[in-house]
Amino acid sequence: MPLTFTLDPAVTPELRDGILDLWADVSNAGGAVGFVPPVVPEDIRPSLVKHFASMAEGTVRLLVGFDEEGRVAATAFLTLNTHRLMTHWLWLYTVMVHPSHQGKGYGRDLLGAAAEAARGLDGIGAIRLTCRGGLGLERFYESCGYKEVGRIPGAIRVAPGDDRDDVIMLLPLH
Rank of each mutant, 00 (worst) to 15 (best):
L22F: 06
L22D: 03
W23G: 08
W23V: 06
A24G: 05
S27G: 08
G31W: 00
G31S: 09
G31A: 09
A32W: 04
A32M: 09
V33R: 04
V33T: 11
V33I: 15
V33A: 08
G34D: 04
G34E: 00
F35V: 07
V36S: 12
P37C: 09
P37K: 13
P37Q: 12
P38C: 10
P38Y: 10
V39T: 13
V40D: 12
E42M: 07
E42S: 14
E42A: 15
D43S: 13
I44Y: 01
I44N: 00
I44V: 11
R45D: 09
R45K: 13
R45N: 05
R45T: 13
R45G: 02
K50T: 14
F52I: 14
S54E: 14
M55L: 11
T59W: 06
T59G: 10
V60T: 15
V60Y: 10
R61Y: 10
V64W: 00
G65H: 04
E69D: 15
G70V: 09
R71I: 10
V72Y: 04
A73P: 00
A74Y: 01
A74S: 12
T75H: 01
T75N: 00
T75L: 01
T75M: 05
T75I: 07
A76D: 04
L78D: 00
L78P: 04
L80N: 06
H83F: 12
R84W: 12
L85C: 12
M86C: 14
M86L: 14
T87R: 15
W89L: 09
W91D: 14
W91C: 10
L92G: 15
T94K: 07
T94A: 14
V95I: 13
V95Y: 00
M96V: 02
M96A: 10
V97D: 01
H98G: 08
P99Y: 02
S100C: 08
S100P: 00
H101S: 11
Q102S: 05
Q102Y: 04
Q102K: 09
G103R: 07
K104Y: 06
K104I: 04
Y106V: 06
G107W: 03
R108V: 05
D109I: 03
L110A: 02
L110Q: 01
L111R: 04
L111A: 07
G112H: 01
A113Y: 01
A113H: 04
E116C: 09
A117W: 03
A117Y: 02
A118Y: 06
